[in-house]
């Protein structure tokens, strides 16, 4: 029987991690009206970038920087090169991002092979908490994630760019009227979301492993989280991430390891049936 401490740690840490991924996902949606199916693939990009840089330089810190930078750049390229041209046709965007995701997976497979790769932890050793031993890395990931989340809230609340992003996510036209350059906002959002996902990828890989398909599960979970929390809401993403993380851990612990992720999907279906706009989603046009 797994200890309560371990479960709690997992919930707290994974919740924070999923938040990072979900926030990026929901921002891209809220700001640009795009459902980015390649978001999971960017996680993979981040993880492998860190791995590669670390393998080359021996420094995982550099690897972390690489994860953020390369993912952000990839995300930017994706937006500027492909998405911005077809933004107004959601179906094309869906298919395009899906294709990109598949391509990334295939490339990772080809370049790095299909085995699980070990990405070094950011911090070694373990700490004893209430009699249980927890990997220091997990605690660090948790702390770092929350630093990022906190930073995001501050960013969106206090800085001009952040506020612009928030305004645009609430209303394209309103923001335009206020003189906000939406193209700039989109660009920032995509880069930011990409960097966050990339870092999340590194964090994930550091206590699991890296493999080409690692982005799939987080993507599915993000879907559930973002729908539960409400498309476009940062607050919703964080709360949703913790709810889902909690439910998932409960399911894994008390039902079965094999049911990982299922609770998220069930929640997704229920939310769609009962209250599609989720906890904090914006009002949608009534049919």
């Amino acid at each position: 029987m797994v200890s309560a401490i371990t479960i709690a740690t997992n919930v707290l840490m994974l919740g924070a991690l999923y938040s990072l991924v979900a926030i990026g996902f929901t921002l891209i949606f809220g700001v640009g009206g795009v459902l980015n199916l390649s978001h999971g693939a960017i996680i993979t990009v981040g993880a492998y970038s860190a791995y590669a840089v670390d393998a080359a330089t021996g420094s995982i810190v550099l690897g972390a920087i690489a994860a953020a930078v390369i993912s952000g750049a990839f995300s930017l390229a994706l937006y500027k090169g492909l998405i911005s041209k077809v933004r107004h046709n959601p179906v094309t965007v869906l298919i395009l991002t899906l294709v990109v995701a598949i391509v990334v997976e295939q490339l990772a497979l080809v370049v790095f092979g299909g085995e699980e790769l070990l990405v070094p932890q950011l911090l070694g050793g373990s700490i004893s908490v209430l009699g249980d031993s927890i990997q220091a890395n997990r605690i660090l990931v948790f702390v770092l994630s929350w630093v990022l989340i906190g930073g995001l809230f501050y960013f969106v609340d206090r800085t001009r760019t952040g506020k612009a992003i928030l305004a645009t996510s609430m209303s394209d036209k309103g923001a335009a009227l206020a003189g906000i350059d939406s193209e700039q906002v989109y660009t920032y959002t995509w880069v930011l979301a990409g960097a966050l996902a990339g870092l999340a990828g590194l964090f994930l890989a550091s206590f699991q492993t890296a493999n080409p398909l690692m982005g799939r599960n987080p993507l599915l979970l993000s879907f559930a989280i973002v729908v539960l929390g409400g498309l476009g809401s940062i607050r919703g993403s964080v709360i949703g991430a913790y709810l889902i993380s909690f439910l998932d851990q409960m399911t894994i612990t008390f039902l079965s390891e094999r049911l990982a992720g299922v609770s998220a999907l069930v929640v997704l279906v229920l939310v769609l049936l009962v209250r599609p706009k989720g906890l904090f989603g914006r009002e949608l046009v009534e049919e």
């Binding site: 729908v227 094999r258 049911l259 999907l265 279906v269 769609l272 599609p276």
Partner: peptide, 20 residues
């Protein structure tokens, strides 16, 4: 589109149940 999402997810849930 919401309905489409439900149809997307339901088989995945079923597959998980099968694995269980």
């Amino acid at each position: 589109p919401y309905f489409s999402l439900i149809t997307l997810v339901t088989p995945i849930i079923l597959i998980s149940v099968f694995r269980f």
